[in-house]
Design a protein around this nucleic acid. Structure first.
Length: 297
DNA sequence: TACGCGTGGGG
DNA sequence: TCCCCAAGCGT
């Protein structure tokens, strides 16, 4: 797609790898002490939640459940409770379900096979590639929002990538993958880190970017995003907000919770009932007898 | 494919 | 203040 002369891939690799070795954050899910399970836990928590908020929950989670089997033995509701305020609590349920599948079908070991990872609950295209790459040092195109933004700018010359991952992006990611496994794995985390620290969505620090002399967006004069504004996430007054308030009450109460305590979180009864029904349908809440509810056991 | 799904921080 | 967005997934 790009028509400008591209920097040779090996040069890009050495630039990003050199930059990463100097600038990588010391995060607990990186490095040799992190087990594949620890990497998987971090990836679930980091889906749409910033690193800073993940750190304390990640530490407490692995302290309590150092293996998939240990989590699988506990109730899913305990996972939801431990998840705390990370948001999108269905991820906690899916992580518990993934741990159960690992315990029952993979001998308690996180699988190193990409297809087997992808088959686990809550593991999609990104997470499967991330775990295979970060935990097992395999060669995969790891396309998260950071990498997609770096490629959009440096390769395609636009400020932001499309809302959803495209075939063209996958092609670019595969073409730029270093040939050997170890280098590919470090490239993947390096490009991600560059997107997280320098090539950010707001206020990119192009002046200090190691790719500034190779970046198509920079060379084009950093043109602003074209086309329709990207749709924001509405929240105020949505079912999502009501679900959050309901679940917060359940999380903070041990045992069963009476209906009236849930009723107190939202004045509008139709929406409140719909939100509660949704939580039950998702398996995040269990109805008990006569108007009592609890986290799933 | 577009949408629903939480929560909080930084510009 | 308000708005944008933060290592996505499942339907």
């Amino acid at each position: 797609m790009s028509t400008t002369a591209r920097t040779p891939a090996p040069l890009l690799h050495s630039i990003v790898l050199d930059w990463y070795r100097e600038n990588a954050r010391d995060l607990p899910w990186r490095g040799p002490q992190a087990t594949p399970w620890a990497v998987m836990v971090s990836e679930f928590m980091l889906q749409q939640t910033p690193v800073k908020r993940v750190l304390p929950v990640y530490a407490a989670w692995l302290e309590r459940w150092p293996t998939p089997a240990s989590l699988a033995e506990d109730a899913p509701g305990e996972a939801v409770r431990m998840w705390g305020r990370l948001g999108y609590p269905r991820r906690a349920l899916r992580l518990h379900a993934a741990a159960t599948a690992i315990a029952q079908q993979h001998g308690g070991e996180v699988p190193d096979d990409h297809a087997e990872l992808l088959a686990l609950p809550g593991v999609g295209e990104y997470t499967a590639a991330a775990v295979a790459s970060f935990a097992f040092r395999q060669r995969h195109a790891v396309l998260d929002t950071n990498v997609r933004r770096v490629f959009a700018r440096a390769v395609t010359g636009v400020e932001y990538p499309a809302p959803a991952t495209t075939a063209a992006e996958r092609r670019t990611a595969v073409e730029l993958l270093p040939p050997d496994r170890a280098t590919a794995a470090e490239w993947a985390v390096g490009v991600m880190e560059l997107g997280a620290l320098v090539c950010t969505a707001r206020g990119p620090e192009c002046g200090t970017c190691p790719l500034r002399r190779h970046c198509a967006w920079q060379q084009a004069g950093r043109p602003p995003h074209q086309g329709p504004a990207r749709r924001g996430q509405s929240y105020e007054g949505t079912d999502r907000q009501v679900r959050g308030k309901l679940l917060a009450v359940l999380r903070e109460s041990h045992g069963e919770v009476a209906q009236y305590r849930l009723d107190a979180v939202w004045p509008e009864p139709i929406q409140r009932a719909r939100a509660l029904d949704g939580l039950v349908a998702d398996g995040l809440v269990e109805p008990v007898a006569q108007g009592f509810y609890r986290l799933p056991q």
